[in-house]
Amino acid sequence: MKAQIFNIHDVVLLMTVAECFLLAIFQAVLPVTNRLASILLSCFLLCVAVGSACILVLWNGDVHIHPVFDRHFLPYFLVTALILKGPALYLYVASLTRESFHLQPRHLWHLTPVAAAMLWLAIFRIDSLDLSFRSIDATDFSRSLVDCVWHVVKALPFIYGIAAVLLTKKYQSQLKDQYSDFSTTEPGWLKVLTIGFLVSWSLSGIAHIIAQTASPDVSDSFGIADNYVTFILINALFTYSLVYAHKLLTTKHEPIKDKHDEKLTDSAIEKVQQGMEIQKLYLKHNLNIEEFSKRIDLPVKEVSAVINKHYGTNFFEFMNTYRVEEAKRLLSDEKHADMTVLDVLLQSGFNSKSAFHRFFNRLVGVSPTEFRKNGAPDAALKKAANE
């Protein structure tokens, strides 16, 4: 009977490699509106595929490509793939969330760690035996050189994972500053995915740390868990790219504020007030801060300053507060008793039932149905008094 070459954990790596290559090809030929995001996603998938394949060859003695490649060239492919997967994910998130995002010469600095690692491998002639700590000629110095390589390839993805999570958090904040109504589903799932990859790369880092200080078996357990989590996340990321990514709203780059931005004029405050109270612009569906600024003839940065500093809120909250007041008026007016709650939310400027109910409950204290049933503008207070 032939000896078993692959165990179940190796099979997961093989499936990850195969699926990433196929998905990268599929992503490349798929007609999309955001071509740069598609290219960056394909790059990320290829990094994961190459990294997983090299890890399989490095640690499984029964898997070979070519003796020369396995011994001398594999470290370069492995290190490059492991380092680049972090920037690829971060730039993919940036291309999805930022308006008119494109790669610029300044983005080349993301390649600096790769170049440094290549020089390190070449100068100290680190091969696969060194990288897997199987070299019989290894000294304490040579092991420390190899440890440096592993420190870098484990730390950098973790750092980029944190940066990607922070980028999604900033994106959600900018949505509230620039849009009066948006779906939370797409940004929410994007944040979940970035957190997922951060967890995955944390597991990989923990496995590396444990390998230096504790039992190899414990380290292997964390490494194996990382492989399974990666396989799940790759499928989730590709599904997200097909179903949700194209629905994301993009945000504009926030200009650097100077000292003049801090001074609010009475004229600017009055224009914003007139836009809300006279023009009733909050009734317009899908209103963003650019459209609002055009309607009141005031620069976006001044509109933002008035809302942030004079009213102490963001554009999203500002608009929806007025919409809730309009909904209260309609619900308490007997002339509109035949209107359904859906009619009310649409006529108030809301697009989403969930957003309407969430804001109404938070600002009024009761649901729209309860508010109408109580039949008074201060339904929440009336209800509390009765209790």
Rank of each mutant, 00 (worst) to 15 (best):
L13W: 05
G188K: 12
I206Y: 00
L156Q: 01
V68G: 01
S267E: 13
G312Q: 06
V300Y: 07
N320V: 02
L96D: 01
S42N: 13
L346R: 01
Q104T: 11
D297Y: 09
V192E: 14
L345M: 14
G365I: 01
A3S: 13
T16Q: 11
A211L: 09
L193Q: 05
E302N: 14
H66D: 14
N351K: 12
Y228S: 07
K252W: 01
R143N: 13
L156H: 02
L119S: 10
K373C: 10
V63R: 02
G349C: 05
V366R: 05
Q212D: 10
D140M: 08
F197P: 10
T239G: 14
V272H: 05
F73G: 02
G312H: 04
H64C: 06
I269N: 07
S215R: 09
G223I: 04
K328M: 07
V29I: 14
D10H: 09
K373I: 11
C43L: 14
S348L: 02
R143Y: 12
C43S: 12
S200V: 05
L46A: 09
W120T: 10
H260I: 12
A380P: 06
G312D: 09
W109V: 12
V149T: 11
Y92H: 13
F44H: 15
L103G: 01
Y160E: 06
I159M: 13
V306W: 06
V114C: 01
Q274H: 13
V243L: 06
